[in-house]
Design a binder for these strands. Structure first.
Lengths: 260, 260
DNA sequence: AAGTGGTCTAGACCACCGA
DNA sequence: CGGTGGTCTAGACCACTTT
């Protein structure tokens, strides 16, 4: 947290927590808030837009308007209750890349990760290209089985450059990968691209997930990049379609800074 | 196009077109561009961020930096060629809600829409709730079959408030729904929420799509809202999983206005 | 009328990186 | 060093909505 902007976000989150415990639902006017935080209104508004994007607050115009704290059910997406879904599926939120365990926690589910394998490998050509390394350079490969409510949910294969992240395997077992990368290497994911298909499970994957061979699975391929546009990791995840609902929310511009 | 910001976006797109035909790859510096467009640099930068989000330009820092026009392959997402995908699937881009026909055109595919039904109906309870109307009020219902390369791709069911959009059915056949709503009612979609599941096709849907009963389909439920937060439409789309790859790209904040 | 968020401006300074 | 994009500021005015 070095930039003013990031500090303001942190301060806002703390303020929201504080207000929530004290039963206050409305934040001060933007002009006052900016002054008390020692930043300009523009900077404050960018931070407000960010936490609004996180679903922490919402803003209302007009004389009785302001920035209000959302006392959400928060476990579920805002309108999901309105969808006529009798299913009890787990939600994979496509708006947030990180944190499968956190995602499950917010849905009131238990999460467990089983490390199937952690190893150094010679990458295939396409993996090397995706990571922007030579095909002779080794990659760290993680294979993890995710459980939700003590039942299999997904199988994840992740590749990272071994040269860029030395001694990564010493951190084993790696549960929250992105946090570790941030902490030990100062690398954070800034953008990503994900492709999703539905394919029948092959024998090996079906065996690990405990499902029938040929059952449809989401196959999600992802690449993520840091702020310089350098690849951070690439992965292939298989999610059980019988337990998973994908959720996606978005919005279009209105001329004011927004975040995603 | 009334606000400066929207006008600048339009001007930028035109400028990019102009430069492209003249073989120029780099836009003028932001300060010059802002002056020549008669707006402040901040406003210009918001517009630049927007068109960057559309994938039209990219920006580079440093002395030799600038805003560069992407001479994209454009049909395909940037890195899809790098994914080891032998498949020839159609891409459903989750970053852009509107324009299935446009989406197909950019992939070099032919598009065709067959209207199966257009009618006024009494909504079910959940549809009425999603649209924020009473269950006694009628809704306009559209059922459309989408073809890509002369083969079925998806079946879409859309509901709108008949009271909010009077005489909508007179515009038949409705191909580009969002454009019609904008043009005739001044309504544009500002945000949306989408839930995706994979379900086996029932007999009727399978028949319309010409696939086997029980074949896995993406079932996408969506609600969209205008800038005031009022519901615009809700729909359920079924996409063939054997012909479809979902694509999703995203990025996180860096303190500067971004768009999605 | 008055207070709120929403947009825009002009200018300053910083961070980056090739000339 | 110097030109580029990236961030921040202070202030003005607009749009909206309740008083």
């Amino acid at each position: 947290m070095s930039t003013p902007w990031a500090e303001v976000i942190t301060a806002l989150r703390a303020l929201v927590d504080d207000f929530t415990t004290n039963g206050v639902e409305k934040l001060p006017p933007e002009r006052d808030l900016a002054a008390s935080l020692g930043v300009s209104r523009g900077t404050l508004r960018r931070a407000l837009a960010h936490v609004e994007g996180e679903g922490v607050i919402y803003r209302v115009r007009g004389r009785a308007g302001g920035s209000f704290i959302k006392q959400v059910v928060e476990s579920a997406p805002i309108h999901s209750a309105m969808f006529e879904l009798r299913s009890n599926k787990l939600i994979r939120d496509l708006n947030h890349v990180a944190g499968v365990p956190q995602m499950l926690a917010r849905q009131g589910r238990s999460a467990r990760t089983e490390i199937i394998a952690e190893s150094l490998e010679q990458p295939t050509g396409s993996i090397a290209r995706l990571l922007g390394i030579g095909s002779g350079e080794p990659v760290v490969s993680l294979l993890r089985l995710r459980y939700a409510d003590e039942e299999t949910w997904s199988l994840e294969r992740i590749y990272l450059s071994a040269e860029r992240f030395p001694n990564l395997l010493d951190l084993s077992p790696i549960e929250a990968l992105y946090q570790e990368l941030e902490r030990h290497y100062g690398v954070s994911v800034h953008s990503f691209e994900e492709h999703i298909e539905v394919n029948p499970a092959d024998a090996r994957v079906a065996g690990l997930l405990g499902i029938h061979k040929g059952a449809p699975l989401y196959a999600m391929r992802r690449v993520s990049w840091d702020e310089n546009g350098d690849p951070v990791e690439t992965s292939v995840d298989f999610f059980r379609t019988d337990r998973t609902r994908l959720r996606l929310a978005g919005w279009f511009d209105s001329g004011d800074p927004r975040t995603s």
